[in-house]
Nucleic acid binder design. Structure first.
Lengths: 210, 210
DNA sequence: CACACATGACTGACTAGCCGGTCATCTGAT
DNA sequence: ATCAGATGACCGGCTAGTCAGTCATGTGTG
């Protein structure tokens, strides 16, 4: 059985120093979020990426490094649109807040990117540096953006001042629930995101608009 | 090396057919939520429970069975207080809703029981029957309770009728965020639960009270 | 009471198989 | 010819699950 095959008969070997890491990350993201860190075998990652196991080690030191890279990588395009929201100069704060919440659903909840949330929750204790990274690069920044909009709205008289407008977390809470719901219960009891968004905005705006 | 130790020098062997399963479940809950399903070794569970590995197999068929038992077991006392809330006859709906939300924080978010949430999220894809179980026994019932209170409040004229009051999920969303926050970011950026509860209630009641 | 015997909870060495990581070798583009 | 990129057989360590054996306790007998 061994030595039987001329290894790559059909497709010619491709040299893709550039593309490889991304392909590996994509394959790894899928498998890690399906099975978790420990239960994912690097050979399966390799298969899915169409390469041999050894190739992974040309680009990543260890399985843990690969995992960290997967989670870090997926975060990159996340905050761009949100920070952009702050720059919209003409709009009032309610419009901007609405935009932020909708963006959150469209970017995080509705897409596969929510799987990152699963990985972060599942492996938080094993990867504390990753948790710090996400807190620093994504969460605290997102919090600051929402806080800034709330502050502006209060200052301009659009929003009331109160506990709710001083706790950004509470404003976006339902979006996190929606993400978790899709991660866990979607097969059993799917959630209509458009209705959820409408209800979320209805709750928030009716509460904080003067 | 083998045969060297008289196995139980000090403590005499105890027979505890009754207590064993509970002890094993407690040990397993701790380790599963620290390390996840795959990374937890049954020998460590045994050590923590003060027994030998083989003993686990007297009470549970496989590692997966043990995991399911852990998660199922932890759910039991969860909904009792909430269903009780519906029976408070004299109180108005706002008081009951406030009670429900506070109970959620005190029972789920503030205690170790939130670890169940972590396990459910992490292993949802591997244990679909467990997901169904939780949806049926806990989530859909909880949803029904909140929906019932909202319905009563609308009927009595306390609450406005709108998207927010037709989507129970949106009402309890911030509590889920709080649970996740504690599971992931607590070491980096702790959350003050009392302030969170206050902000949550402020958000919700200001929105739906007429 | 005392002694033999039965019970079954408990043990832990062991097996079989899995998987992260290595490295000698191969391949094809230049 | 050279060599970066890629391969996959292999190694070593690990662990779910097994099972033959142990022993504390219970039971029946004289």
């Amino acid at each position: 059985m061994r030595m039987s095959e001329p290894p790559k008969p059909a497709t010619r070997q491709r040299r893709r120093k550039e593309e490889r890491p991304g392909e590996i990350l994509a394959a790894a993201l899928t498998l890690f979020s399906e099975r978790g860190f420990s239960a994912t075998r690097l050979e399966d990652v390799a298969d899915r990426a169409g390469i041999a196991k050894g190739t992974i080690y040309l680009y990543f030191q260890t399985k843990e490094d690969l995992f960290e890279a997967v989670v870090r990588d997926a975060f990159a395009p996340l905050l761009e649109r949100l920070t952009g929201a702050l720059e919209l100069p003409s709009a009032n704060s309610a419009v901007i807040l609405r935009f932020i919440i909708e963006t959150l659903y469209r970017q995080m909840v509705a897409t596969e990117k929510r799987e990152i949330l699963r990985l972060l929750i599942a492996e938080a204790k094993r990867f504390p540096t990753l948790v710090s990274f996400y807190h620093r690069e994504a969460v605290s920044r997102g919090k600051a953006i929402v806080a800034e909009i709330l502050r502006r709205g209060i200052e301009s008289g659009e929003f009331r001042d109160g506990p709710a407008t001083r706790y950004p977390e509470v404003i976006i809470g339902p979006a996190i629930l929606a993400a978790i719901w899709k991660l866990v219960f979607e097969p059993v009891d799917p959630m209509d995101l458009d209705e959820m968004i409408e209800a979320h905005l209805d709750l928030v705006l009716n509460s904080i608009l003067k």
